[in-house]
Amino acid sequence: MFTNIEIDIDSIPKAETVKLKPISKSYLKILFINIFIQYSILFGVVILAINFIKEDWVSIVFWYVIIFLFFLLILQFIISILSLKKRGYALRSHDIIYAKGLLIEKRTTVPFIRIQHLETKQSFIAKKFNLASLHVYTAGESGGDLSISGLTLDEATRINQLLTTKIN
């Protein structure tokens, strides 16, 4: 028989009290390397510009640009250090939770029954630190997908396997 009992809001499992598991600390190294590569390209371009464009305004602007870039670099380092602490994930028996973001904190929960497929990716740099990222795709084109970076390869594979059995 069909029944429709009222749901007691207080008795529903609470997702906000779940303790998140932090991602690997060595992910910070990857972040640093990425930032380093980005900024060496930027600095390189600026230095090329000063050497090739022989006009007055370039040399005046040069130091301002360098200082500005340097300031940005420091800022990005600080942000990536602080934001590392905000990244974390948790698995419950029916869904996976992932949180990230320093200035804008975002916490996404994907129920297992909505997972379309999974992907474990390992970039060239991540391989050196034995890290991997796990991508959880839903059918949403609107942005409900998860990508958890900075897991150890072992962790990523284990979660991947666990989720694969769960979604079938």
Binding site: I104, K106, T108, T138, S142, G143
Partner: peptide, 23 residues
Amino acid sequence: QAVATKQTVFQKLRNIITVEVYT
């Protein structure tokens, strides 16, 4: 498909948050 909450630093000070519901 998925549910997310989003909160800026300013919203955090006031315990305010935005819920996003994805289909």
